[in-house]
Amino acid sequence: MILVTGGTGTLGRKVVRGLLDAGRDVRVLSRSDKAPYDGVQVMVGDLETGEGVDQAVRGVDTIVHCAGSAKGDDVKAKNLIAAAVPAGVRHVVNISVVGANTIPVVSGLDQKMFGYFAGKRGAELIIERSGIPWTNLRATQFHELTFTVAEQLAKLPVVPGPSGFKIQPVDAAAVAERLVELALTEPQGQVEDIAGPRTYTFKEMMKVYLQAVGKRRMMLPMRTPGKAAAAYRAGANLSPGHGTGRTWEDFVNAEVNADVNAGVKA
């Protein structure tokens, strides 16, 4: 039995689908009792509080840990491992973020803007030190999240953006495919990063989105202080040489066309 945490989210659903297609028995830990697909066992629980986690890991050989949020990922990992160790889980596959081990989060401002990286690193260390054999995959920003950010910023008359920041967005489908591969093999520890095929400045990223939706916006570059921001400008969130999957342009155009087609059908 393979347990997928966050199995109803953007990445988790794709992982669940891949495991089902591989003929595996899949269980999902979720705060909702709604299954993402037929044939999936759902266990209701909450990794933030630990409620229901003991029951969810019972009889599980492998966990693919996809549950994540803007903060508190270290707490989620702690509660998961506290249940997984006595349950005899034999492999934990964790998804983390490129930069988790290289972006310093030392000040209040760093914590406010980049605390996500610290939470991911905390989760990595909890899993590594658990005694359970593990595999850790770091990915760059998902196209899906980048699209949401661009969509929201495009609603403003002037788009503020951090100067000097670059991103290398990756398709969640490619990340899910890699996680499925890792879940079906022996634990490998830290594996190579996974990233998108191209790197973009913030301005380039926004221009792709604005062009696709037929909008024009003025860009307002803003200098972000702090050590974490300096590391970001230096490319600590990037992974050259590990590009795969669709480009940002291809993803955006597919999403916009899907929305247009949905509107026409409606």
Rank of each mutant, 00 (worst) to 15 (best):
M1V: 10
V4T: 06
T5S: 14
G6W: 05
G7D: 04
T8W: 09
L11M: 07
L11E: 04
K14M: 12
K14Y: 05
V16W: 06
R17S: 14
G18Q: 06
A22D: 03
R24Y: 07
V28A: 05
S30Q: 03
S32G: 11
S32I: 02
S32P: 00
D33T: 09
K34W: 02
K34P: 00
P36K: 02
M43F: 14
V44D: 12
G52R: 01
Q55K: 09
V57G: 01
V60F: 06
H65G: 08
G68R: 01
K76P: 00
A77K: 00
N79H: 15
A82G: 06
A83D: 10
V85K: 06
A87N: 06
H91W: 05
H91A: 09
V93A: 09
N94K: 04
N94M: 14
I95K: 03
N101V: 09
V106G: 06
M113R: 00
F114V: 00
F114D: 09
F114N: 01
F117L: 15
F117C: 05
A118I: 04
E124N: 07
E124K: 01
I126R: 07
R129D: 11
I132T: 03
P133D: 12
T140Q: 08
Q141L: 13
F142E: 10
L145T: 15
T146Q: 11
T148Q: 15
V149G: 01
L153A: 10
A154E: 03
L156G: 03
G161F: 11
G161W: 08
G164C: 11
I167Q: 11
V170W: 02
D171S: 15
A172Y: 02
A172C: 04
E181T: 04
E181Y: 01
L182I: 02
L182Q: 01
A183L: 02
T185S: 15
Q188S: 11
Q190H: 13
V191K: 04
V191P: 00
A195T: 05
G196V: 07
G196P: 02
R198L: 15
R198M: 14
R198T: 13
T199C: 08
F202N: 04
F202M: 13
F202D: 02
Y209S: 02
L210Q: 05
L210N: 00
A212H: 04
R216L: 09
M219P: 02
P221R: 13
P221G: 10
P225F: 10
P225C: 12
K227G: 12
A228L: 09
A229V: 12
Y232D: 15
R233E: 14
A234C: 09
G235S: 08
A236M: 05
S239V: 11
P240V: 13
H242D: 05
G243A: 06
T244E: 15
T247R: 05
W248T: 10
W248A: 13
F251N: 10
V252N: 12
V252A: 13
A254S: 14
V256K: 07
A258P: 02
D259F: 14
N261F: 10
